[in-house]
């Protein structure tokens, strides 16, 4: 027990030496706001942009990143196999054939979050940072052990929040728990511009008046995301999708390739509604 306390607190900011890649945890507190979808799409967008990326599913027991990415049939080993020495890291990493610089390290499905040793997981993230430009960690919902494990090795955090009171409240809590040592940014997910205009949904400003985080991007609530998830094809790889472009824009902002302010999705004009059915 005592041994566990120290690695949880310390390595996050202090013990991790500066390595090559960036470890970014995608978190939210509340479940169902789109952490996994965000992780998958940002990973795909970053990889498509030329970076080497590994996606780590930290949601042990409720593995989903593999199916969202469409890689579920190719997972042979998972993160606990690696941590417990039953598989090498290279055995466990699944390469995405669509974007070969994208790898997935799946979570164990039949195990529990408490089975993951924080120090070992943190060390694994450190190893991955030596090998990849980006290590994106898909954090489980909640603020228990799974959360502390997922954030322990990350020096940056992306908080995903939908414009709902419950999501904002949980995001606020999570930001408090993330502490001071990390760079924390915000993605507002599933925004419905038409509802915002009518005053029926919190706006991006409303959300961020409360959270006060640097805004990384805004993703509209669009059918593309649902369709692409059904198919296991990240929408970020769909060149024709507006939401895909929003993910790619976020990826450019993460790499620093773009410094433009995030675009807030707008309502379609009457003309667009009349003639365009896409997106």
């Amino acid at each position: 027990m005592v041994n566990n306390v120290i690695p949880q607190e310390a390595p996050a900011t202090a013990a991790i030496p500066q390595k090559r890649g960036r470890a970014i945890v995608v978190t939210s507190g509340k479940g169902g706001v789109g952490k996994t979808t965000t992780t998958a799409n940002l990973g795909a967008a970053l990889a498509a942009g030329g970076a080497t990326v590994v996606l780590v599913d930290a949601d042990v027991g409720l593995r989903n990143l593999d199916i969202v990415l469409g890689l579920e049939a190719r997972v042979r080993h998972h993160v606990l196999d690696v941590l417990e020495g039953q598989a090498t890291l290279d055995d466990a990493l699944v390469t995405d054939k669509r974007v070969p610089s994208l790898r997935l390290l799946a979570a164990a499905q039949t195990r529990e979050k408490d089975d993951v040793d924080t120090a070992a997981f943190t060390e694994l993230i450190g190893t991955l940072r030596d090998r990849f430009d980006f290590v994106l960690i898909d954090c489980p919902a909640g603020i228990e052990k799974g959360f502390t494990n997922a954030i322990a090795g990350a020096d940056e955090a992306i908080v995903v929040c939908t414009p709902e009171v419950s999501a904002v409240r949980d995001a606020d809590r999570v930001v408090g728990l993330l502490g001071e040592g990390r760079k924390v940014t915000l993605i507002v997910n599933r925004l419905r511009p038409a509802l915002v205009r009518k005053g029926k949904m919190l706006s991006v400003d409303d959300v961020n008046d409360i959270l006060h985080l640097p805004l990384l991007g805004v993703i509209a609530d669009a059918p593309d995301v649902i369709v692409s998830t059904n198919r296991g094809e990240p929408v970020a790889l769909d060149a024709t999708s507006l939401v895909g472009e929003a993910y790619r824009a976020i990826a450019r902002r993460i790499t620093g390739a773009s410094t433009a302010a995030p675009e807030i999705p707008r309502e379609k004009t009457f003309f667009e509604k009349l003639f365009g059915s896409r997106s």
């Binding site: 709902e164 009171v165 409240r169 606020d172 809590r173 005053g199 949904m201 919190l202």
Partner: peptide, 18 residues
């Protein structure tokens, strides 16, 4: 009051007490 304004107000209050 639009419901979004109510949402924001309620959030402010609850976070304060949180």
């Amino acid at each position: 009051k639009p419901s979004s304004a109510m949402a924001k107000e309620r959030l402010r209050l609850v976070l304060l007490s949180d």
